[in-house]
Design a protein around this nucleic acid. Structure first.
Lengths: 370, 370
DNA sequence: GCTAAATGTGGAAACGTTTCCATAGGGAGG
DNA sequence: CCTCCCTATGGAAACGTTTCCACATTTAGC
């Protein structure tokens, strides 16, 4: 309220004055660089302590022409996969004395470019980027042109750009193979933002190829919006309109669980009437009933690896070098994947769907709540 | 490999030379501050464009004695509540031209203090903090001493420090009231990190009070570790050891869902044999069967509000001022909360638990997988 | 006891920017 | 015609640091 004891920043000059020496000496002592006698060293250290001196990183960065910060550009934090990856990144950066600057792009390439520009102005040491679209990506071109080190996360373009990512194509193929193994013939691929996401498209490619190789029909595709309540409605519509499909590959676990929920709303049982396989391997998938069959990945680990790779490129000597190979994944069996319905179950399913089509969606909800 | 066409930073000096004027003029033009003739303005703008000039934010920050960055200190990104909040923060900062510096503390106060120190060295304009323990918190004391603006998120100490948070005590009380309304008498409180989290303790306080006011027994408390697989085991043990409890309040939705899953493993049904109420209102809670009864909060909104409050304190004129009141929450009914088991159900439940105690936990898993 | 090297120190420049100040031209008002 | 003020401009200082360099002192080698 009264005494404006405005805190005054204490600089290296203040320390020098107090220690009775030049600022160069202070800098050397505090940075443990160059020569210094034990005597002055002690005086400087004492002075710094007395005054509560802390380096001003801005001054340092200006002189050193760079910061100890890494810019990170990801689509969103709502997706737990990205959040986990970020946690992995943060852990590694922290361990190596780097700071994390974060921006979310919401899959908007314009936004992405702005973010990269801002990071460059802030003179980040490097960037970690997850983008929706690799090909002709303006942000990446900018970084290449300026020769700024960067590391890609979750992105890779087969035979061209490589980053820390699972082989989405191979993983998608694996899902197709598994579905075939259970005897499914007619499958669906459910995605959010298929058009704007390389990753989703790669998974679909692999899945398609597997369908072809193992004699399944070409998958029926649906792209749903990600506003949760709307998603449910869209998924219900999709299920109703495609009663012939017996198994679904969802582009991530959340969609997979949404699909199972939508099926439940329609009175359908998983895996009795339909099978569902997800992607990512989020923990929740193990807590639900039936447990979700999915491709398990390690986003946190991947984030860590991407950070380590970047740090290595920056000549930081990290504790243990990250593996060179692409990120591992594995197929997890789960109760949500079973044999396709046969005979009685099919009849049951069709009966249920027929009933549903007689209700408005609102009606369905009401009926199920009763 | 060969031509080292090392990119050379272009500075305001280069622009000045090219435009044939002084650097002061360039600065004025590019910042639209002070006077400039139309003629020079055009020359400078053209020169800047030709050379691809971009401001060096370090130089700017040094002169201006501060950055346009906000430091954010949260416990973890794995908890989707924090991730959502961060998304809200990021959105607002982005909208107002501020950058986000992020650190996760994993509830470690030492780590928290280090992070705050680093942010101060980087001359952030302000901080947003979520801490486990408010009382006597060293980081906050440091910030007060240095007179650095900060905004608390998810924390508040009734009658003392205030931040953007729901009234955890009142919300906990509300849960107790609801459980009483359903006729429960003996309840449990399940938490991770109870000792290290003010929030969890406040929820418990409110819950306890409600139990007292509505004539329930004092709640039985259990603290579980957060390593998922271990959690399941611990929860199973807890359920077995407390067969008399009919309802559980979990300190967050994830624990609530874990508890339901653990119950399922034991053969128990929700809400037939036990009721469960969560906290947070994560989306997943609506996708599972039965839907989770919980306290619904708006972490993303809260993050946004905390950012806006901070920006206002920094005299940024934000678009619309955040609400002054504490963050809203609401109780959501869900299938996971029902009446306590009576007669036949109790017998059934005891029978199931008796069977379980005959198996090792490993045995349980095997039995259920079969 | 002499040079050469090793050790210790501080002045000053530099990093890229903003901004104070001095200077100067031009128009208006007396 | 002389002030005065307004517009326009660039030189130079300042922000806090690191580091080059020149200089001083000690130690070592003969």
């Amino acid at each position: 309220m009264s005494g404006s004891s405005k805190y005054r920043e204490v600089t290296i000059k203040d320390v020098a004055k107090r220690a009775g020496c030049g600022i160069a000496t202070v800098s050397r002592v505090l940075n443990k660089s160059g020569f210094s006698s034990k005597e002055t060293r002690e005086k400087v250290l004492a002075a710094a302590k007395d005054l509560g001196f802390e380096f001003n990183e801005i001054g340092r960065s200006l002189k050193r022409k760079g910061t100890q910060a890494i810019g990170c550009v990801i689509p969103s934090l709502i997706n737990p996969v990205f959040a986990s990856a970020l946690q992995g990144i943060q852990d590694e950066l922290d361990k190596n004395g780097y700071q994390l600057l974060l921006t979310c792009t919401d899959y908007d390439l314009k936004h992405e470019l702005d973010a990269v520009r801002t990071f460059l102005q802030k003179k980040v040491a490097g960037l970690i980027i997850t983008t929706g679209r690799l090909e002709g990506n303006a942000s990446l071109n900018l970084l290449k042109e300026r020769e700024i080190p960067y590391s890609l996360l979750f992105n890779y373009l087969p035979g061209s750009v490589s980053g820390v990512a699972v082989d989405n194509r191979a993983a998608g193929y694996e899902v197709g193979r598994r579905l075939a193994g259970f005897g499914h013939k007619a499958c669906g691929y459910v995605s959010v933002n298929l058009s704007g996401s390389d990753r989703s498209q790669q998974r679909l490619q692999g899945f398609r190829q597997a369908c072809e190789d193992f004699g399944l029909n070409a998958p029926t595709i649906v792209e749903v919006s990600d506003a949760s309540t709307k998603t449910q409605d869209e998924l219900c519509d999709y299920l109703c309109a495609n009663s012939g499909l017996t198994a679904f590959f969802a582009s991530n676990d959340f969609i997979a669980l949404s699909l199972i929920s939508a099926a439940r709303r329609l009175g359908l049982r998983v895996p009795r009437h339909l099978s569902v396989v997800g992607f990512d391997g989020i923990e929740m998938g193990l807590l639900v009933d039936p447990p979700l069959a999915t491709i398990v990945t390690d986003p946190r680990g991947m984030g860590g690896v991407s950070a380590l790779r970047l740090l290595m490129e920056l000549n930081v000597d990290v504790e243990n070098a990250p593996p060179e190979a692409e990120a591992p994944y594995s197929f997890r069996e789960g109760g949500s994947l079973g044999r396709p319905p046969s005979g009685k179950s099919v009849a049951e399913k069709l009966q249920l769907l027929r009933q549903c089509s007689e209700f408005s969606r609102h009606g369905i909800a009401e009926r199920n709540e009763a």
